[in-house]
Amino acid sequence: MSTTLLLLADGRFPAGGHAHSGGLEAAVTAGRVRDLETLAAFLDGRLATAGLVAAAFAAAACRGGDTSTLDSEMDARTPSPALRKASRAQGRALLRAGRTLWTLSTVERELHHPVALGVVAAAAGLAPEEAALTAAYGTVTGPASAAVRLLGLDPYATHALVARLARDCDAVARRAARVATVDELPACSAPLLDIGAEAHASWEVRLFAS
């Protein structure tokens, strides 16, 4: 239990998160997410795929894994150039914030977001599982908050969905933190997150950066 963990996981932490919908804007426009039920299914799938991958990379980076290896392994797991760009933009924003608050072990300006999160979490004195939890939690709260803004869903009902995912989120973080080697790092893919991100990047007008 640590206040630092809450600080880093807080949606108000100034690391650019508010401008990213985690694929939700694309899913809403495609008609795949329309209401609480479809949002719940979206969050389930995102947590099990992108959430587990992000959590495992955050834990590995927090444990002191080589950032450039982790960064290129993250590239290999992110076929969508739009998602690579979004991940690096959020990583850059997080490193900017982290560098102001703590002393980071890397001089990189830009890393994939989960790798940056691990680096910042380590600098803040957090454990790998806490870094993993922050990453997993962020992969569901980002789109949940975007859903409130885009679909006008009841914020209480939306938070109830997130609360219901708490146990799954904890389990994802525990599993992610157990990953011991680079080869074991998960690569769970979500085809519609990739395809949706490419469609989103091709739009003329977007409300969210990704």
Partner: peptide
């Protein structure tokens, strides 16, 4: 690197983030 899982043990695979 890609891992794809479908079926009853895979969480959210049929939902709008994965196969919709």
């Amino acid at each position: 690197r890609q891992d794809l899982a479908v079926g009853p043990r895979a969480c959210g695979w049929a939902g709008p983030a994965v196969l919709g």
